[in-house]
Protein backbone atom coordinates (compact mmCIF):
# COMPACT_ATOMS: atom_id res chain seq x y z
CA UNK A 1 0.00 0.00 0.00
CA UNK A 2 1.32 3.43 -0.95
CA UNK A 3 1.44 5.61 2.16
CA UNK A 4 3.12 8.64 0.60
CA UNK A 5 2.08 9.56 -2.91
CA UNK A 6 3.68 12.65 -4.42
CA UNK A 7 3.45 13.72 -8.06
CA UNK A 8 4.83 16.87 -9.61
CA UNK A 9 5.33 18.53 -6.22
CA UNK A 10 6.54 22.07 -6.50
CA UNK A 11 7.23 24.92 -4.12
CA UNK A 12 8.19 28.37 -5.35
CA UNK A 13 9.45 31.11 -3.07
CA UNK A 14 9.61 34.74 -4.02
CA UNK A 15 12.87 36.41 -3.02
CA UNK A 16 13.66 40.08 -3.38
CA UNK A 17 17.08 40.88 -4.73
CA UNK A 18 18.81 44.23 -5.02
CA UNK A 19 18.51 45.52 -8.58
CA UNK A 20 19.81 49.06 -8.15
CA UNK A 21 20.55 51.64 -5.51
CA UNK A 22 16.90 51.97 -4.45
CA UNK A 23 15.28 49.17 -6.39
CA UNK A 24 14.54 45.58 -5.48
CA UNK A 25 13.35 42.98 -7.85
CA UNK A 26 11.11 40.00 -7.05
CA UNK A 27 12.51 36.72 -8.25
CA UNK A 28 10.85 33.31 -8.07
CA UNK A 29 13.01 30.46 -6.84
CA UNK A 30 11.83 26.86 -7.11
CA UNK A 31 12.86 25.18 -3.85
CA UNK A 32 11.14 21.96 -4.93
CA UNK A 33 10.75 21.49 -8.64
CA UNK A 34 8.53 18.61 -9.72
CA UNK A 35 9.28 15.88 -7.20
CA UNK A 36 7.65 12.47 -7.75
CA UNK A 37 7.75 10.00 -4.89
CA UNK A 38 5.88 6.89 -3.82
CA UNK A 39 6.65 5.28 -0.48
CA UNK A 40 5.15 1.97 0.50
CA UNK A 41 3.93 1.06 3.99
CA UNK A 42 6.73 -0.14 6.27
CA UNK A 43 9.49 1.21 4.03
CA UNK A 44 12.42 3.18 5.44
CA UNK A 45 13.46 5.76 2.88
CA UNK A 46 16.60 7.85 2.93
CA UNK A 47 15.94 11.32 1.55
CA UNK A 48 19.19 13.20 1.07
CA UNK A 49 20.61 16.16 -0.76
CA UNK A 50 23.05 19.03 -0.31
CA UNK A 51 22.16 22.09 1.77
CA UNK A 52 19.35 24.03 0.11
CA UNK A 53 18.37 21.10 -2.13
CA UNK A 54 14.74 21.15 -0.95
CA UNK A 55 14.69 18.26 1.55
CA UNK A 56 13.20 20.12 4.50
CA UNK A 57 10.81 22.01 2.22
CA UNK A 58 9.53 18.67 0.93
CA UNK A 59 9.12 17.38 4.48
CA UNK A 60 7.21 20.50 5.49
CA UNK A 61 4.82 20.02 2.56
CA UNK A 62 4.38 16.33 3.39
CA UNK A 63 3.54 17.15 7.00
CA UNK A 64 1.08 19.91 6.09
CA UNK A 65 2.88 22.95 7.48
CA UNK A 66 3.73 24.42 4.08
CA UNK A 67 1.44 24.98 1.10
CA UNK A 68 2.72 23.43 -2.12
CA UNK A 69 2.74 25.74 -5.14
CA UNK A 70 1.66 22.86 -7.38
CA UNK A 71 1.43 19.10 -7.50
CA UNK A 72 -0.39 16.20 -5.93
CA UNK A 73 0.41 15.14 -2.35
CA UNK A 74 -1.25 12.46 -0.27
CA UNK A 75 0.08 11.15 3.02
CA UNK A 76 -1.95 8.32 4.59
CA UNK A 77 -4.56 9.14 1.92
CA UNK A 78 -4.94 12.72 3.20
CA UNK A 79 -4.08 16.02 1.56
CA UNK A 80 -1.63 17.37 4.16
CA UNK A 81 -2.41 21.11 4.39
CA UNK A 82 -6.21 21.09 4.51
CA UNK A 83 -6.17 17.97 6.73
CA UNK A 84 -3.20 18.99 8.84
CA UNK A 85 -4.87 18.36 12.20
CA UNK A 86 -6.20 14.93 11.19
CA UNK A 87 -2.91 14.02 9.57
CA UNK A 88 -0.99 15.06 12.69
CA UNK A 89 -2.59 12.15 14.59
CA UNK A 90 -1.25 9.71 12.01
CA UNK A 91 2.29 10.96 11.59
CA UNK A 92 5.21 11.62 13.87
CA UNK A 93 7.90 14.19 13.17
CA UNK A 94 11.35 14.73 14.65
CA UNK A 95 13.31 17.79 13.66
CA UNK A 96 16.87 17.31 14.90
CA UNK A 97 17.32 21.04 15.40
CA UNK A 98 13.98 21.77 17.04
CA UNK A 99 12.08 20.40 20.01
CA UNK A 100 8.49 19.31 20.44
CA UNK A 101 8.97 18.79 24.17
CA UNK A 102 8.04 21.25 26.92
CA UNK A 103 11.31 22.89 27.86
CA UNK A 104 10.60 23.53 31.55
CA UNK A 105 8.77 20.30 32.34
CA UNK A 106 10.26 16.90 33.15
CA UNK A 107 10.36 14.55 30.17
CA UNK A 108 7.83 12.27 31.85
CA UNK A 109 5.30 15.14 32.03
CA UNK A 110 5.87 15.99 28.35
CA UNK A 111 4.92 12.42 27.48
CA UNK A 112 1.81 12.59 29.65
CA UNK A 113 0.81 15.88 28.03
CA UNK A 114 1.28 14.39 24.57
CA UNK A 115 -1.05 11.55 25.58
CA UNK A 116 -3.79 14.14 26.03
CA UNK A 117 -2.84 16.14 22.93
CA UNK A 118 -2.99 13.03 20.73
CA UNK A 119 -5.90 11.50 22.68
CA UNK A 120 -4.13 8.20 23.21
CA UNK A 121 -5.99 5.71 25.45
CA UNK A 122 -4.17 5.38 28.79
CA UNK A 123 -3.48 1.63 28.37
CA UNK A 124 -1.97 2.10 24.87
CA UNK A 125 0.12 4.96 26.20
CA UNK A 126 1.43 2.88 29.10
CA UNK A 127 2.32 -0.05 26.84
CA UNK A 128 4.13 2.08 24.28
CA UNK A 129 5.91 4.15 26.89
CA UNK A 130 7.15 1.01 28.64
CA UNK A 131 8.48 -0.25 25.28
CA UNK A 132 10.35 2.96 24.50
CA UNK A 133 11.60 3.37 28.08
CA UNK A 134 13.29 0.01 27.83
CA UNK A 135 14.50 0.42 24.27
CA UNK A 136 15.87 3.94 24.66
CA UNK A 137 16.81 3.69 28.32
CA UNK A 138 14.74 6.72 29.30
CA UNK A 139 14.30 6.05 33.01
CA UNK A 140 17.68 7.51 33.93
CA UNK A 141 16.59 11.01 32.93
CA UNK A 142 12.79 10.95 32.60
CA UNK A 143 12.31 13.09 35.71
CA UNK A 144 14.66 15.85 34.60
CA UNK A 145 13.32 19.03 32.98
CA UNK A 146 13.95 18.91 29.23
CA UNK A 147 16.22 21.96 29.43
CA UNK A 148 18.65 19.95 31.60
CA UNK A 149 18.98 17.02 29.18
CA UNK A 150 22.01 16.41 27.00
CA UNK A 151 21.42 16.48 23.25
CA UNK A 152 21.58 12.68 23.08
CA UNK A 153 19.06 12.30 25.91
CA UNK A 154 16.79 14.90 24.38
CA UNK A 155 16.86 13.17 21.00
CA UNK A 156 15.82 9.91 22.65
CA UNK A 157 12.99 11.85 24.25
CA UNK A 158 12.05 13.44 20.90
CA UNK A 159 11.89 10.02 19.21
CA UNK A 160 9.65 8.69 21.97
CA UNK A 161 7.44 11.78 21.80
CA UNK A 162 7.05 11.35 18.04
CA UNK A 163 6.07 7.69 18.37
CA UNK A 164 3.91 7.55 21.50
CA UNK A 165 0.67 8.01 19.55
CA UNK A 166 1.54 5.11 17.23
CA UNK A 167 1.99 7.05 13.95
CA UNK A 168 1.82 5.27 10.61
CA UNK A 169 4.53 7.50 9.16
CA UNK A 170 7.57 8.93 10.91
CA UNK A 171 9.45 11.87 9.38
CA UNK A 172 12.96 12.31 10.71
CA UNK A 173 14.84 15.46 9.77
CA UNK A 174 18.49 15.01 10.76
CA UNK A 175 17.83 13.00 13.93
CA UNK A 176 21.53 12.35 14.56
CA UNK A 177 22.82 15.89 14.02
CA UNK A 178 25.30 16.89 16.72
CA UNK A 179 25.16 13.55 18.54
CA UNK A 180 28.25 11.79 19.86
CA UNK A 181 29.17 8.31 18.60
CA UNK A 182 27.43 6.45 21.43
CA UNK A 183 24.20 8.43 21.08
CA UNK A 184 24.26 8.00 17.31
CA UNK A 185 24.60 4.27 17.74
CA UNK A 186 21.70 4.21 20.20
CA UNK A 187 19.46 6.19 17.80
CA UNK A 188 20.47 4.07 14.80
CA UNK A 189 19.92 0.85 16.73
CA UNK A 190 16.48 2.05 17.73
CA UNK A 191 15.58 3.02 14.16
CA UNK A 192 16.83 -0.34 12.89
CA UNK A 193 14.48 -2.07 15.35
CA UNK A 194 11.67 0.16 14.16
CA UNK A 195 12.44 -0.72 10.53
CA UNK A 196 12.58 -4.43 11.30
CA UNK A 197 9.23 -4.29 13.12
CA UNK A 198 7.88 -3.06 9.77
CA UNK A 199 4.72 -1.27 10.90
CA UNK A 200 6.00 2.30 10.64
CA UNK A 201 6.95 3.97 7.39
CA UNK A 202 10.00 6.16 7.91
CA UNK A 203 11.34 9.03 5.82
CA UNK A 204 14.83 9.87 7.01
CA UNK A 205 16.58 13.09 6.00
CA UNK A 206 20.20 13.36 7.02
CA UNK A 207 23.63 14.56 6.02
CA UNK A 208 25.22 11.64 7.85
CA UNK A 209 25.41 9.02 5.13
CA UNK A 210 26.34 6.36 7.68
CA UNK A 211 22.71 6.64 8.87
CA UNK A 212 21.54 5.86 5.35
CA UNK A 213 24.00 3.00 4.85
CA UNK A 214 22.97 1.30 8.05
CA UNK A 215 19.24 1.89 7.86
CA UNK A 216 17.84 2.49 4.38
CA UNK A 217 17.59 0.12 1.46
CA UNK A 218 16.14 2.82 -0.72
CA UNK A 219 17.66 6.22 -1.25
CA UNK A 220 16.20 9.30 -2.89
CA UNK A 221 18.69 12.04 -3.73
CA UNK A 222 17.35 15.53 -4.39
CA UNK A 223 19.33 18.40 -5.83
CA UNK A 224 18.12 21.85 -6.90
CA UNK A 225 14.62 20.69 -6.04
CA UNK A 226 14.66 17.69 -8.39
CA UNK A 227 15.02 14.00 -7.74
CA UNK A 228 18.33 12.91 -9.24
CA UNK A 229 18.34 9.36 -7.91
CA UNK A 230 15.63 7.04 -6.64
CA UNK A 231 16.71 3.47 -5.97
CA UNK A 232 18.93 1.26 -3.89
CA UNK A 233 22.42 2.17 -2.69
CA UNK A 234 23.85 -0.52 -4.98
CA UNK A 235 22.12 1.05 -7.96
CA UNK A 236 23.62 4.40 -6.97
CA UNK A 237 27.10 2.87 -6.91
CA UNK A 238 26.56 1.25 -10.31
CA UNK A 239 25.17 4.38 -11.81
CA UNK A 240 27.95 6.65 -10.65
CA UNK A 241 30.78 4.21 -11.32
CA UNK A 242 31.72 3.37 -7.79
CA UNK A 243 34.36 0.69 -7.79
CA UNK A 244 35.71 -1.64 -5.15
CA UNK A 245 39.42 -1.34 -4.64
CA UNK A 246 42.04 -3.98 -3.91
CA UNK A 247 45.19 -2.84 -2.13
CA UNK A 248 48.11 -5.30 -2.17
CA UNK A 249 51.37 -5.14 -0.22
CA UNK A 250 54.30 -6.97 -1.86
CA UNK A 251 57.53 -8.41 -0.43
CA UNK A 252 59.50 -7.18 -3.47
CA UNK A 253 58.58 -4.43 -5.90
CA UNK A 254 57.58 -5.45 -9.43
CA UNK A 255 59.33 -4.09 -12.50
CA UNK A 256 55.96 -3.20 -13.96
CA UNK A 257 52.57 -3.50 -12.19
CA UNK A 258 50.58 -6.58 -13.18
CA UNK A 259 47.88 -5.83 -15.70
CA UNK A 260 44.49 -7.56 -15.66
CA UNK A 261 41.52 -6.84 -17.96
CA UNK A 262 38.74 -5.30 -15.89
CA UNK A 263 41.08 -3.86 -13.26
CA UNK A 264 42.93 -0.53 -13.34
CA UNK A 265 46.04 0.45 -11.42
CA UNK A 266 45.08 3.47 -9.35
CA UNK A 267 48.33 4.12 -7.55
CA UNK A 268 51.74 2.65 -6.78
CA UNK A 269 53.67 3.70 -3.67
CA UNK A 270 57.09 5.32 -4.06
CA UNK A 271 58.90 2.17 -2.96
CA UNK A 272 56.74 0.03 -5.27
CA UNK A 273 55.62 -2.22 -2.42
CA UNK A 274 51.96 -1.10 -2.31
CA UNK A 275 49.71 -1.13 -5.38
CA UNK A 276 46.07 -0.06 -5.42
CA UNK A 277 43.73 -1.44 -8.09
CA UNK A 278 40.21 -0.31 -8.94
CA UNK A 279 37.96 -3.17 -10.01
CA UNK A 280 35.73 -2.62 -13.02
CA UNK A 281 34.59 -5.99 -14.32
CA UNK A 282 37.33 -8.13 -12.78
CA UNK A 283 36.79 -9.87 -9.46
CA UNK A 284 39.05 -9.47 -6.45
CA UNK A 285 39.75 -13.21 -6.55
CA UNK A 286 40.95 -13.16 -10.15
CA UNK A 287 43.19 -10.18 -9.47
CA UNK A 288 44.74 -11.77 -6.37
CA UNK A 289 45.32 -15.06 -8.21
CA UNK A 290 47.00 -13.22 -11.06
CA UNK A 291 49.25 -11.28 -8.65
CA UNK A 292 50.12 -14.37 -6.59
CA UNK A 293 51.36 -16.04 -9.74
CA UNK A 294 54.03 -13.40 -10.36
CA UNK A 295 54.82 -11.90 -6.92
CA UNK A 296 55.08 -12.72 -3.26
CA UNK A 297 52.10 -11.08 -1.47
CA UNK A 298 52.45 -9.81 2.10
CA UNK A 299 48.96 -8.42 2.63
CA UNK A 300 45.73 -7.84 0.74
CA UNK A 301 42.74 -5.64 1.55
CA UNK A 302 39.49 -5.10 -0.32
CA UNK A 303 38.03 -1.62 0.13
CA UNK A 304 34.30 -1.16 -0.42
CA UNK A 305 33.22 1.95 -2.33
CA UNK A 306 32.63 4.95 -0.06
CA UNK A 307 29.09 6.28 -0.22
CA UNK A 308 30.29 9.75 0.73
CA UNK A 309 32.51 9.88 -2.38
CA UNK A 310 29.64 8.77 -4.58
CA UNK A 311 27.22 11.25 -3.13
CA UNK A 312 29.79 14.06 -3.26
CA UNK A 313 30.32 13.31 -6.95
CA UNK A 314 26.58 13.28 -7.45
CA UNK A 315 26.15 16.64 -5.69
CA UNK A 316 28.98 18.17 -7.72
CA UNK A 317 27.47 16.86 -10.95
Amino acid sequence: MTVIDVRGLRKDFTVRVKAGRFRREARTVAAVDGVDLAVEAGEMLGYIGPNGAGKSTTLKMLTGVLYPSAGHVRVCGLEPVPRRTRLARRIGVVFGQRSQLWWDLPLRESFELLRHVYRVPATDHRTRLKWYRDLLDLDAFADLPVRQLSLGQRMRGELTAALLHGPEVLFLDEPTIGLDVVSKQAVRGFLADLRDAGDTTVVLTTHDLADIERLCRRLVVIDHGRVVHDGTLERLHERYGSRRRVVVDLDEPLATPVDLPGATVESVSADGLRISYALDSATAGALVARLAAVASLRDISVVEPDIEDVVARLYRA
Partner: peptide, 17 residues
Protein backbone atom coordinates in the same frame (compact mmCIF):
# COMPACT_ATOMS: atom_id res chain seq x y z
CA UNK B 1 13.18 30.93 14.73
CA UNK B 2 10.89 28.43 13.01
CA UNK B 3 10.17 26.56 16.26
CA UNK B 4 6.49 27.25 15.67
CA UNK B 5 6.57 24.19 13.41
CA UNK B 6 6.25 22.02 16.55
CA UNK B 7 2.99 23.82 17.41
CA UNK B 8 1.62 23.37 13.89
CA UNK B 9 2.44 19.66 13.86
CA UNK B 10 0.17 18.93 16.82
CA UNK B 11 -3.45 17.89 16.26
CA UNK B 12 -4.81 20.96 18.05
CA UNK B 13 -5.78 24.45 17.07
CA UNK B 14 -2.72 26.58 17.90
CA UNK B 15 -4.78 29.54 19.15
CA UNK B 16 -6.81 27.40 21.53
CA UNK B 17 -3.73 25.51 22.71
Amino acid sequence: TGDVVADLLRPVNPVMA
